[in-house]
Amino acid sequence: MSFRAHRAMAVAWKEALDLKKNPGLLASMLALPAALVLVPVGIIWSYVHSPDDVSLRTIALYYDPSLPLHASAARFLVEKLLADWFGLFLLMPVFTPILISSQSVAGEKERRTLEPLLAAPLGPAELVAGKSLAAVVPAVAISWLAFGLFVVLVDAVAWPLVDGPVLPNAMWLFGVGVVAPLFAFLGNGIAVLVSARVGESRLAQQLSALVVLPLMGLVGAQLAGWIRAGTGYYALQGAVVLVLDILLVAASVRLFDRERLVSRWV
């Protein structure tokens, strides 16, 4: 069956309408970005509020024992936080498509809408593409909007300390512009794959969400000082995720075989 873009777009159109009318899901989609934007702003505010606190220097020296005596520990920690926080910020593009795709894919089974859908001239690749588009686009859009808000708030709070804007910098621009969309595809791919197997949206969401554990582990390693985060490090992450994305798309299309879905789900 040949791929027809209009059918994938029709699926994406329907999913977008459905999402717009699901306030519960919209609220849960906004909760994580709010936390990921406000928490670091609060931490930066605490650095700016008491920049001469001796404990800040102690922490800074843990991360960089060669920090010069005249250098501001608070400024060092702001920059360190921003470099490390991007690892956590990536949870947003990963997690948002998981919320959407788990509902939209496994939800078809729960709502018993799958059979009429499969009886329409719609191929597995079109179905996966439409559903993925409807999950990845909002995830990337939310990430970019959250980044915009993050830049404004961080600069506003950090300005008295650094006397200029700290964001956007090259690492964040590259990360949000390139790496975040790749992570959005990863979250979506995993959710689609898991949903196609378990067929229950809540379980699909819970299982797919486990993907954040390795990410949390990496951020933990950064905070422990074992990994030094920077543009190169995030570029490497992006490259690994790109390979995973390609494998997940191929696996999803295979799993969305009509016979398999009807036999298992309907």
């Binding site: 209009h6 059918r7 699926v11 309408l17 009318k21 699901n22 709502r111 809408t113 059979e115 329409a120």
Partner: peptide
């Protein structure tokens, strides 16, 4: 097998689009 949050028109338009 209808999409409950969508209106009747939207349900039909979806299949017309397909």
């Amino acid at each position: 097998g209808l999409y409950d949050r969508l209106t009747t028109r939207e349900n039909l338009r979806f299949f017309l689009k397909l």
